[in-house]
């Protein structure tokens, strides 16, 4: 079963920490990723550029609307993701709890729609 782990954090406090602290967090991320890879559970994942680089696209009445943003009024922003394989929700949440940003931010755990399984059900 595939789960998307969406990593939300406060960009301002991320920017405010020292370089050494940041390197420590990156090291933890690499270790977790390496461990998941060795068990075949890491499917993909990446840090995202800050929300200031985001662009919104909508198509309305056949016309593309490309704008700056989105800038929701929340203090946490989507800063990265892990796509993982886990046997059930408990395993997925255990992995989510080990993401370094879980200590300061929020990890949203979402199961992927598995089309083969849905078709069979």
């Amino acid at each position: 079963m595939k789960y998307m782990l969406l990593i939300y954090h406060d960009e301002q406090s991320w920017d405010a920490i020292t370089d050494a602290e940041r390197q420590q967090v990156y090291l933890e991320y690499r270790n977790l990723r390496g461990e998941l890879e060795s068990r075949g559970q890491f499917l993909s994942g990446s840090e995202l550029q800050p929300i200031t680089t985001a662009t919104t696209v909508r198509v309305r009445d056949g016309k593309d609307l490309v704008t700056d943003g989105p800038f929701a009024e929340t203090h946490e922003q989507l800063g990265g993701y892990f796509l993982i394989e886990a046997k059930d929700l408990d395993e997925a949440t255990s992995i989510a709890a080990r993401i370094p940003s879980a200590r300061t931010g929020t990890i949203e755990v979402r199961p992927l729609v598995e089309h083969a399984a849905e078709a069979a059900a």
Partner: peptide, 14 residues
């Protein structure tokens, strides 16, 4: 069903 919440007795640490 969709998030696959397990049907089992939780692991000891939980």
């Amino acid at each position: 069903r969709l998030a696959r919440i397990p049907y089992e007795i939780p692991a000891l640490e939980r």
